[in-house]
Amino acid sequence: MINNGTIVVPTDFSEQSSEALRRACVLAKQFDAEVHLLHVIDPSLYFETDMVSISPLDEISKAQHEGATKRLVEQAGSVDLPITTHLEDAVSDPARAICDIAERLSADLIVVGRHGRQGVLEHMLLGSTAERVVRHASCSVLVAMPHGLVGDVQE
């Protein structure tokens, strides 16, 4: 299952992502693997360039990166295992960026949390990030279900 000793955990800083990190750490201890915690900044915020000058965009981007870096460090510190953190800007779909980074790290496994709050219409139109990661990943993917859903595994 884990040959190269690398597990990637994408995070959006939600409780589901924290659960995915916790489960990845359990596996990392069992298989003597490294855990890489990854946050991808979603480029879905677009501005009309004639309406906004470059300076505020740079300030927004800097604040977004600083906030994400702080939250990555906090989340990595919440577990009792050394964690490597990564902050990446997505060029398009964050799920594709997750898969690309996992491939670049020669990851054996991606452990991703699944949100249970997505509506049916939203799911039909967009799918979920977890589903897109499963579809495009070049390695195995473990989807950590939110607590309380049918079929949730308790440890």
Rank of each mutant, 00 (worst) to 15 (best):
P94A: 05
R114L: 07
P82R: 09
M145N: 14
V153N: 12
I41H: 05
H147V: 06
G151C: 09
L149M: 15
R117G: 03
I83N: 06
L142I: 05
G148Y: 07
L105V: 06
L105Y: 12
C139Q: 07
E88C: 06
P82D: 14
T69N: 12
E155Y: 12
R114E: 05
T84Y: 15
D93Q: 07
E131S: 03
S92P: 10
A144H: 02
D93I: 07
R96Q: 13
S44D: 08
V133L: 02
S128W: 00
H115N: 11
R71Y: 13
H147L: 10
D42K: 01
H86Q: 09
Q64W: 10
E74A: 12
S92L: 09
V120N: 00
G119S: 08
I83Y: 01
P146E: 03
I60D: 12
R117H: 10
L125M: 01
A107K: 02
I98C: 09
S78C: 05
I60L: 15
S44A: 07
L125K: 00
A63F: 11
P56L: 15
A76P: 03
E74D: 11
A95M: 03
A97F: 03
P146R: 07
S55P: 11
L121W: 00
A95T: 05
R132N: 08
Y46Q: 10
A76L: 03
A144G: 03
L125H: 00
Q75G: 02
A107M: 07
F47I: 04
A97G: 06
